[in-house]
Structure formats: C-alpha cells, structure tokens
Nucleic acid binder design. Structure first.
Length: 817
RNA sequence: GCCGGAGUGGCGGAAUUGGCAGACGCGCACGACUCAAAAUCGUGUUCCUUCGGGAAUGUGGGUUCGAUUCCCACCUUCGGCACCA
C-alpha cells in the first residue's frame, strides 16, 4: 500500500518559500548585459489604508506575466513602491487625528507585509517611497528644470477648487457631469488664484501619436479625445474702434454666412465694445454669468441667453458690419473666447439667432437637399455642400471649400489655417500639507526664484498645523515660510503650496532604477540598460491623468536631455475591476470590501492568485464570488495529490504515453500564447484540463513512465508563474534543483503535440449529422467519399444527389443538398 | 447628442483565420466512502421534445454552403466627453 500523502496546507509551505526567496535574493534584478532586459511595471499603490483584493487583482497576474517572461530567459525587473503623498492619505489622517506622516508610514509598513504575502517577484531593494526626502528631492529637481526651461509657469486664472479638500485641482481631476473632485466626489467651484502650471499643451500634438507604443485602443482614444485637436482657421475681425477681434472656426468656408459675433462674458473687449446705451444691460448680464457656477453655465439643455453690446465688427472677407453680442454659451477657456455666428450652419448659433431675431444666411447648399431658405429653415444644416452667397468662393464643392477659404484669408492677410486643443496646461499647485513643497522662493526684488539644486530638498516640516483651516498649512508655519532670496540674499518667502502627487508619480519608474541616488535622479547605466518600461499594467481610470502626465514628463525631459527616446512605456495593458460580491464597487461604507489577508488565511496565496486569474477576463473584472474560489483551491489540492500519490504502471504504456505527451505539448503551446496575450483565465483552464487528462492517464496505468515524469516536470514549470509556492514545493519534493523560478520555460515539441487522428464533422446544409475519426493526412477526395458513405448522411440526403460538397481540412465536410 | 467597452446555460466564463456553441470552473442532482457530517472521489447537468429531432450566443435584417465571429439598423448596460466654435 502506498503511503497516503498529507493534505495540501498552504500555510505550511508559503511563508517558508517566501522567506527562502527573500534570503537568496531570488528576485533581485541587476544589470546583466548578456541577457535581454525586461522592465515589467505595475502601478504602485497609494497607502491610504489596507491593501484590498483589487490590488491583488492588478498585481498578481502582472507578477505571473513577469515570471513567465523571466522563465523565457529575460532579465526581468519588477519593482514596487508607494505613491505616498496626497489628499486621501492626508484626509484619512485628519479624520483619525493622526499626523499624516505617521499615518502614511504605518500604512506602508502594513502594506509591505501584505504585498510580501502575495509571493510576487518584487525586487524590494529598489523600493521607492515618494514621501521620502530622498525621493521628493528629485520631484523638486524636476520641477526646477521645468521652471528654468519655461515649461513651468505661474499664472492667475480661474481654477477648479474643491471646497471639501480645500485645494485646487487639475482639469483632469475634475470628473463627471456635475464636475466633482476625483477624490472626494464634492462638486468643484471656480476661484481666481495664482497657480503653477506645467506646459503640457506644448506637447499636445506629440501626445496624439501612438505609433511607437502598444497601448489599448480605448486608452489612446480617451487621450485623443482629451487632447481634443480641432483643425480650422483663425480669422481676425476688426471692431469699429479698430481693435482686432480674433476668432477660431472649424468652418472657415462659412465666413460669408456670418451675421453676428459673440464674445464670452469674460472677454477683454466686452467693456470697450459696449455702447453707453447698452452698458447697464451688459454689466448685469456679465455679473450674472460670473456668479453662476460652471455647471449651471455649461448645462447643454439650457436655453440660450445673451445681450447685444451695441458694438459692431467688420467681417474681413466681405467688409460687412455685424453686431457683436455677449453670451455665456461662448467659453473664455476655449479658442479665443470669441466666435463668429453662422446660424445657418451651426445649431447653437441658429438657436441664438432665432431667439434674438438675427439674420440667418445660407452659404452652403447640400447637394442632396432642396434649396435652403434662411428665413424659414427649422434647424441649422451643418453638412457639406456647394458654396453659395460667398463672393469669390461661390460654386466651390464641399470637399474643397475649407481649403479654398483658408487660401483666401491667408492671401488677404486676415487669418490663417490653425488648430486648437481642448487640453489645458496641467495645474500642479495644491493648498495642502501632505505633498512635496514647490521649490520656489518669492523675492520682492527678484520675483519667483527656483531653489538652487544644491539646496534641495526643500524639506516638508513635521511641526505644522495640518488640520484644515482653508489655507495652505505651510503658510501658517511660524518660521518655515521665511527665508532669504537665493539670488540677492534679501528677505524672501517660500512658496507654501505643495505639488500634485501626479507630479511625483510621473517619474517613479525612473526612481526604481536607483532609489536614493545622490547626484542625479537615477544612475545613468541603470537607465541605459532598463529603460524604457517594456510592460506596464494598471487601471484604465488613469488614461487622462497619470498616463498622459507621465508621457508628457518623459517627452519634456527628453527635450532637456534627461530621458531618452520618445515614450516611457512601450506596452500597456489594463485590468478591469473586482467588484464586491453584491456587484457594486467595493467601499467601506457599503461593507462589501473583500480582505485579501482573510482569503489568504482561508485558502493560501496560491489559491487567491489562481482564482483572480481564472475567474475573470482580466481586462474586464467582475464581482467577487466567495464560492467560485473553491474551484481554484480544489485544483491545487488535486495537483498536490495526483502528482504525489503513487499510481500504477501498466505493462504496455505506449499509447498512453503518446496521448499524454500530445496533451502536454498542446497545453504548453496554448499556455505560452495566452500568457503573452494577458489571457490568464485560459492559462489556468488549460492547466486544469491537462490535470484531468493526467488523472485519467494515471488511472489507466500511465503513471511513472518517462512521459509521466516529463508531464509532471513541464506542468510544474507551467504553473510556477501562477502558483509560485506550491510549484516550488513540489519541485523540491521531486528532487529537482532549486529554484523552479530559475528554470527555463519548457521547450515545445511540435511532433509530440501533433495529432495523428482527427474527428471530422459531417454536416448537411450546415447542420452536424455525423462525426467520423480519420487519419490526419486524409485527402480531400477520401474525406468526401467517407462523408457521402455515412449512414446518417445518406439518410438526410434521402437519395438525392448533393449539389455541392465543401471540405475544410482537418475540420469538416459540409454537404449542400 | 458624440466616443468607447460589454451583452453567450442557474452563475463566472471558453470558442486561434467565418467551421462541432457552452471548454474549464462554480452551483445543483444522484451515487461511492462514513454511524453521520465535512472533505474527497465518480456520474449527470442549455432549453423544448411525440426521442425522429427542433430551438438557442441582447433584438431585427443582410452576406455565406456555414455567422458568437463579418456588414447594416436597433435595444440594454457600464464608462468617458459634452454649448469645444
């Protein structure tokens, strides 16, 4: 009788191997020029509390993929760190009345422990924590470089302010129809403030190019829409007082259809254009518009409002005098804050014209429509068509109209082809404590001066009143603010705002290269070897925030000679989201948060990893299923017992061996391609299928043959990226050399995987009627003959001759009756 | 309104290039083991059926010998953007 094997108890093996791997530095990634490098990166966590199952969902498949790459022979670096500054941590600390630093670093200590329980191949020597002075010193250094090169500037402007978080936000961090704060969901308000901006708009055009990177199309689309490039022309009208009044239009071919102009209420020419008779009305309208929130003003279902300024402008293409109106449907923040009104061909202008009784003049006649009449048409017609009523452009066909109009205005010197972008410069000032201080000194004589690089970091003081007062906490510090000017030595004050954390996370992939490097943000040889990031994984929710910022950062610093190449991350893959068991987003208030520590206690890390890979389409995610995870646990338990328990060996195992080897090598192929495609669910299901086959072979007497032992060997190596602990344990128990994670990926044997018999499906009119087993090398003629000879087919044909017989090699014969 | 993702058994999901729809797993049912239960193992499991078959991948059309897959028009749902000139 064979000795029974003890049960699979993950707790007995997982921490043991984690400790051993750590001691041996198994996952240390060092420069090795004899090997191809692979920089695998997954988005770093934010230490606002505990790790939740969503972190596991993002990280463990990424880890499995990185492990797979390593077994393929790459020198893989897979680092981890903490995005430690920022609002949520600070808010959580305030709530608990704990200093943000203490709160954050306690969380980090806890999360480190939790991360270690994953059994991931993180190289902890490279850990970077963005709240460490050694780190934010370089965040500040990057700021100083941008400032010195005119890519960072300070400007007074209306900005988004979160009244709950007491700080300004970047446009990207204001979400949804009600324009709420990305972090706390409170609707934002507008405030006029002096703030620091990064000139991301300089790179708008280049950010639209994705040809060097393999990123998911939805992300590229989100970024493209966010950047919002519009092609058209800028045209300079002239007010009757002689001031130039520039507008942007995507339809310069409709310039002859202009019957009025509209200025945004904030437009600088409003005051000058307004006649004394109209002044009272215009002032009242402007004041009302300014008072309204952006949400009220930008509500699309609102009826058009506006007021005549009394002034006129001259249309440069035909010298016509057109009235200038003021209306809040024109936004100061887009284009030039002024538009030309072409009511016949723009619905918004049309609504406005009809409401205020302005002329509607048709200048485009679509070829497939009846002749338009401005006086009676019920809606605007924005379509293409032949140009009419437009002097020199009359008769131009639609496709050429815009180009010809641009030629015309350029020749006349009254405008030119132009593009406009929706993206705004990145606002990085935050009126909060828990962030990297903006390294700037304000001197009454020298103005805003960057802190010299040898004086960085500007330390964030611990002894501040960090509880919210509505002011930047650093402003209230008794001494920190006051300093001397680095240029003239006179009395000066520090900038008291801190930086947006997205600034810190824009370069963290460089910090991993050589954290705490003393004289440059990274060691050059590390950069040259590891960069760019080969594979980046994370959530799609960062598409128009982190993922656009980090591309900008890389390009800006390429131009300053710090980084190399055009893109920081070559491949991007997004995971979906794990929802609570109730199908809702996990949140503490709903009480549907799944604690990974508890799952690890119940089933072990390997089971949690396997289930997260097996149970979902990784790109999509879905609700946590507390029952389904049992399947993954059973799988590992079955591997444990089927591989270890003795079986029986038949006298003749030739057929069994052949069958087993075929399945093994077929699985090897599909597992490999599925890892490459981030299709982890089918990686695991293929392994389960192979295990079922192995169990059957073992029952039939195919145990302990060379083929069986090869199967066990290959199986363990294939499952090692998914379940690193159990595979290491079994690998050791079979006396194989430590460590399985240093083994090469098994070699695929095509001959072994080849089928020698196939099942041919026989159809009549596309419906399956019979199946026959035939030799793999059957000829077309033989296959058709066999198909027609089938009893079931004969019955279906009922004596009639087939009209057509279709043969798909290796698959089917379809008889068309 | 515009842009994108998703829609397949009771559930999670699979289906390489247009070629057997439902792999793999959960759940459920029955059986074995057990005094019993848990665990484990085995068998079955889309629906309807007169047991010949028939229907079925959100809906309706189309292309094709053949469509979950391609095309057209919709519906539901989840995201993003939205008076962007």
């Amino acid at each position: 009788m064979a000795e029974p094997i003890e049960r699979y108890i993950p707790a007995n093996i997982e921490s043991k191997w984690q400790k051993r791997w750590e001691e041996d530095g198994l996952y240390h990634a060092d420069i090795d020029k004899s090997k191809k490098k692979y920089y695998a990166l997954t988005m770093l966590p934010y230490p606002s509390g505990n790790l939740h199952i969503g972190h596991w969902y993002a990280m463990t498949p990424s880890d499995a993929h990185a492990r797979f790459k390593r077994m393929q022979g790459y020198n893989v670096m897979f680092p981890m760190g903490f995005d430690a500054f920022g609002l949520p941590a600070e808010n959580a600390a305030i709530q608990r009345n704990i200093h943000p630093k203490e709160w954050t670093y306690d969380n980090i200590a806890n999360m480190r422990k939790q991360l270690r329980s994953m059994g991931a191949m993180f190289d902890w020597r490279r850990e970077a924590v963005s709240a460490d002075p050694e780190y934010y010193r370089w965040s500040q250094w990057f700021f100083v470089q941008l400032m010195k090169n005119n890519l960072a500037y300070r400007k007074m402007s209306p900005v988004d302010w979160c009244p709950n978080c007491n700080t300004t936000l970047a446009r990207e961090q204001v979400w949804g129809e009600d324009r709420h704060c990305e972090r706390c969901k409170t609707p934002v308000i507008k405030k006029d403030l002096n703030q620091w901006f990064f000139k991301i708009t300089n790179y708008a055009d280049e950010l639209l190019k994705f040809d060097q990177i393999d990123w998911p199309e939805p992300v590229e689309l989100l970024q493209t829409n966010w950047i919002g490039k519009s092609k058209g022309a800028s045209v300079v009208f002239t007010t009757e007082q002689g001031d130039p009044l520039e507008v942007f239009t995507t339809r310069p071919d409709t310039l002859w259809g202009v019957t009025f102009m509209v200025l945004a209420p904030e437009h600088p020419l409003v005051e000058k254009l307004t006649t004394p008779e109209q002044k009272a009305e215009v002032d009242a309208y402007v004041n009302e518009a300014v008072r309204q929130t952006e949400i009220q003003r930008e509500a699309t279902d609102k009826e058009k409002s506006g007021v005549f300024s009394g002034g006129y402008a001259i249309n440069p293409v035909n010298g016509e005098r057109v009235p200038v109106w003021v209306a809040d449907y024109v936004l100061m923040t887009y284009g030039t804050g002024a538009i030309m009104g072409v009511p016949a061909h723009d619905q918004r202008d049309f609504d406005f014209a009809r409401k205020f009784g302005l002329d509607v003049r048709v200048v485009i006649q679509p070829d497939d429509m009846e002749k338009l009449d401005g006086a009676t048409m019920p809606t605007a017609v924005p379509a293409e068509g032949t140009v009419v009523n437009s002097g020199p452009l009359n008769g131009t066909p639609g496709a050429e109209a815009i180009g010809k109009a641009i030629e015309f205005i350029e020749a006349k010197g009254v405008g030119k082809g132009a593009v406009t972008y929706r993206i705004r410069d990145w606002l990085i000032s935050r009126q909060r404590y828990w962030g990297a201080p903006i390294p700037v000194v304000f001197c009454p004589k020298c103005g805003a001066v960057p802190v010299p690089e040898d004086q960085l970091p500007v330390m964030l003081p611990d002894d501040v009143e960090w509880r919210p007062t509505g002011e930047s906490p650093l402003k209230l510090h008794p001494t920190w603010r006051f300093t001397t000017c680095p240029v003239c030595g006179g009395e000066a004050e520090r900038e008291t705002d801190t930086m947006d954390t997205f600034m810190c996370s824009s370069w963290y992939h460089l910090a991993y290269l050589s954290p705490k490097n003393p004289d440059w943000p990274f060691k050059q040889d590390e950069y040259d070897y590891w960069m760019p990031v080969d594979c980046y994984t994370g959530g799609v929710e960062h598409a128009t925030m982190h993922l656009i910022y980090t591309r900008f950062f890389h390009k800006a610093f390429r131009d300053l000679g710090v980084t190399k190449g055009d893109e920081p991350m070559l491949q991007l893959r997004n995971q979906g989201q794990i929802l609570g068991p109730d199908g809702q987003r996990m949140s503490k208030s709903r009480g549907n948060v799944v604690d990974p520590d508890e799952q690890v206690r119940l089933y072990g890390a390997d089971t949690v990893r396997s289930y997260l890979m097996f149970g979902y389409r990784w790109q999509i995610g879905g609700p946590w299923d507390p029952g389904n995870i049992q399947g993954s646990h059973r799988w590992l338990g079955r591997v444990w017992s089927i591989f270890q328990e003795e079986g029986k060996t038949a006298k003749d195992t030739k057929a069994l061996d052949r069958k087993l080897r075929r399945k093994v090598h077929q699985t090897l192929k599909s597992v490999g391609t599925d890892f490459e495609r981030f299709e982890f669910n089918t990686v695991v299901s293929a392994l389960m299928e192979l295990l079922n086959e192995m169990a059957a072979i073992k029952d039939a007497g195919g145990w302990n043959t060379p083929a069986w032992n090869e199967a066990v060997d290959i199986y363990l190596r294939m499952m090692a990226p998914v379940a690193p602990h159990i595979s290491e344990e079994l690998w050791a128990r079979f006396g194989k050399p430590y460590s399985i994670h240093q083994q090469p990926w098994p070699e695929y044997d095509e001959a072994a995987a080849a089928e020698d018999e196939i099942e041919l499906v026989l159809q009549v009119n596309g419906k399956v009627r019979d199946k026959i087993v035939v030799a793999v090398d059957i000829t077309e003629a033989q296959a058709k003959e066999l198909a027609l000879a089938s009893e079931a087919i004969q019955k279906q044909l009922d004596g009639k001759a087939p009209r057509k017989v279709i043969y798909v090699p290796g698959r089917l014969v379809n008889i068309v009756g």
